[in-house]
């Protein structure tokens, strides 16, 4: 029950951050896109670099006040590398991830984002099903 409340609170914080970013500087809080831009052309995307720095800072601050141990990955190194490559390739090709399509895009009622979110949710659920229950 408590974990659901934290989920809801965290979601409200994420949504508020996305709205505040749009209201203040007119940008979509799509993390895969802004992260890529901050690396590809950092000089014209200093705002994105600072947003990325903030992400790490925010998660680090919560961990400082948290009593739970830091989460770890329960996957082998080849799986981690493969997963990373596929996620990076996929979000670039599909123009967005959970934040850009899922939170901001659906928030704007964009058809593209609704279709993209449904697609990645279905494929993620299928992947977990195959990995945990078939293999």
């Amino acid at each position: 029950m408590e974990s659901y409340l934290y989920g809801l609170l965290g979601g409200v914080m994420i949504g508020t951050a996305a709205i505040l970013l749009m209201m203040s500087i007119g940008r979509i809080a799509g993390i895969s896109g802004l992260f890529f831009d901050s690396l590809k052309s950092p000089r014209s995307n200093v705002w994105a670099l600072l947003f990325v720095a903030g992400l790490i800072l925010g998660t680090g601050m919560v961990q400082m006040f948290s009593s739970t141990p830091t989460p770890t990955l329960s996957a082998s190194l080849p799986l981690i590398i493969t997963g990373g490559l596929v996620v990076g390739f996929g979000v670039k090709l599909g123009h967005g991830c959970t934040s850009g399509h899922g939170i901001c895009g659906i928030g704007r009622l964009s058809t593209r984002s609704i279709v993209a979110t449904a697609t990645f949710m279905i494929f993620a659920i299928l992947t977990v099903f195959v990995r945990l229950h078939l293999l």
């Binding site: 993390i31 895969s32 992260f35 990325v52 992400l55 790490i56 800072l57 925010g58 998660t59 680090g60 961990q63 830091t70 989460p71 990955l73 996957a75 799986l79 981690i80 493969t82 997963g83 990373g84 490559l85 596929v86 996620v87 990076g88 390739f89 996929g90 979000v91 670039k92 090709l93 599909g94 123009h95 991830c97 959970t98 934040s99 399509h101 593209r112 279709v115 993209a116 979110t117 697609t119 990645f120 949710m121 279905i122 494929f123 993620a124 659920i125 299928l126 992947t127 977990v128 990995r131």
Partner: peptide, 28 residues
């Protein structure tokens, strides 16, 4: 859009990290 989203979903399901948490978790 569809291919990219599908690939992203597969990778997300394999490891459990999407781009936002992957970057913010560097703090760990």
């Amino acid at each position: 859009l569809i291919t990219g989203a599908a690939m992203f979903g597969i990778g997300w399901g394999l490891v459990g990290l999407c781009p936002g948490p992957a970057i913010s978790s560097l703090a760990y």
